[in-house]
Design a binder for these strands. Structure first.
Lengths: 190, 190, 190, 190
DNA sequence: AATGAATGAGGGTTCATTCAT
DNA sequence: GATGAATGAACCCTCATTCAT
């Protein structure tokens, strides 16, 4: 007789969590530094106390919001890797990373110095995906090996978010950067 | 016409400005987010009110501090350009830019979203210097021309500060990044 | 005339009241200040709203909870008075009062400044019981009469709750206090 | 030429500290639970932030306020002990303790569970003074020795504050209590 | 003119109560 | 009727700025 869910009671709670998350990510995409709790609450159409209680503190909310943004990115990275393989995937994925970053105004800068476990974990995942792409590329001779592979991975992975910052709203710049980066990653001709 | 007394006071004021600036730049080089006015004042050995009054607000102080950091960088860029010319200068200068950024903990992030006219002007100066380096490089055929030169300049100039962020404290990473960037900027082999 | 359905609902409501009261008294016996409504609700295995609704506010719940703790104490006092009579009863009863207080962590302190009618009434009852004990004692010449009887009653009654506080967890101290108090209450030898 | 103080600059700061302290102790003497920071600030005629900054947090302010109340009490205790010696001093001092407590509405209860180092230290001082009084009394045979002296000291010292609670505004009750306590502390007649 | 204490708006958080489910 | 999430006022605290000394 009982549904398999047993969660009917939390329907509105989940909806509000969602709305708070959406509001947070939306504000994260705008200039003006870390969004205030009250601003998030207002945009979400709810009280300030609600967003705090729903996540247990502003930091946790931020973590959840960024994690929600990052998760599909990781999945997308794996998809692209499987579909295209190696260096082709790398280029496509980096383009998406940059587009993401461009769409979310300085997400990382705003959260510098905070303790965001989910975000940290997902960024590590991103690094792993990029590492896999670079690994395949090196095996195929498409990615240079004269620089410590670990460094290259770190470089691409760690800077993937910050490099896009400069290409704010100008896709051509991101494209140019990508072009330069990919060429720079090719093996040097002797 | 000016009394020696009035001059003495001016001298004091100037010395205070200087000490406040030194304190601000010193704190800008440390982790912990934007320095508080009181912290700057303490390090400068003066009252908090003096710091604010000397610059007319914290933002103006920050602007002055960053400008002071950037100014020698611009001069240095011009020097290097004259000395080495073109692409050689570019590489050397980018290395210095990164080292500077590494030495001044996330200066840009701390000041994101603020109105800093002097800083903005100096960053434009930096772009012009880089542009000159790239221009010479293109004329010599050492820098690729298949990407809009304006874009490349913007790319290098705008990202010069952010790219170093990821390589914090690991010079090898900065070096690797530089290597990749310079190779990516070379004309494509057909 | 009453439907069994209606009765069933009443039974539920009563059972909820009971569980809420039990939870409240249990938490009143623990350190940590006045228990939060949500803590009471959780321990009672019900929603926070139910707890409030069942009593019409937290204060009323607290009043009911303390009253429930005090009521058996009053009955016990009457029992002891009937059984032992006068001063013997007094000593035995005071010991129980202290034990009660020790078992219910600072009940009074937690509720200072609240409006608790039932509690107030029961405390008056306690005073009356103690008064009766003292009265018998005075008639028997076992309790001093050189101090205004009303004062002595008030003294013993009002302090019965607070004196035990200092002896928290150290029965010897409570015992010592009781010894001193009883001796002090004896008629002075001339 | 310079004054021996060198503190002229802080004249107003000290005055405000004093006013905040006075406001705090005044509110501590009134019913209504722990005073709110804003209430203290308003009564002291200053902003809320000022009282916090002046003491580094509400707890510290409370500690300072209570300590200020307690300090003269300790000194007074030592005076009385020197002047009267032993049990006479005890009675006089306890009377003052009770009067103090009566004048400062439930000071202790309001602060239960807080970390108040200065207060704690001063309370220990009070215990030591009382201990000295009891010790002399026991040597003179004026204070009973059939109860562990440590217990008696603890009893008197620890309860000195709480016992006065019941005598709110009624000196006769405090007097009656004192009478009973002193008699109870006498050696038992065999 | 410098000082550093006072200010006070604004921040995140808590919690008794209310209300949609 | 019970639920527990939403509410929102109230709390303590921070910090750039102001102002009496």
């Amino acid at each position: 007789m009982s549904t398999s869910h047993g969660k009917a009671l939390r329907a509105d709670a989940l909806r509000n969590r969602r709305r708070a998350l959406d509001a947070a990510t939306a504000l994260l995409a705008e200039p003006g530094g870390p969004p205030k709790v009250e601003a998030i609450a207002e945009r979400a159409g709810m009280g300030a106390g609600t967003v705090v209680r729903a996540f247990g503190g502003k930091d946790a909310l931020m973590d959840a919001a960024v994690a929600e943004l990052l998760e599909p990115l990781v999945l997308r990275g794996r998809q692209i890797l499987e579909r295209d393989g190696g260096p082709t995937a790398l280029r496509a994925f980096l383009a998406e990373l940059m587009a993401f970053q461009a769409a979310h105004y300085a997400v990382n800068d705003q959260l510098a110095g905070l303790d965001l476990p989910a975000t940290t974990a997902l960024r590590a995942e991103l690094v792993r995906v990029v590492d896999a792409m670079l690994g395949e590329g090196r095996e195929q001779g498409a990615i240079r090996s004269d620089i410590d592979p670990v460094l290259v991975t770190s470089l691409v992975g760690e800077t993937a978010f910050t490099i896009a910052k400069a290409s704010h709203g100008t896709p051509e710049l991101a494209e140019a950067y990508l072009e330069v980066l990919m060429d720079g990653l090719r093996p040097r001709v002797p």
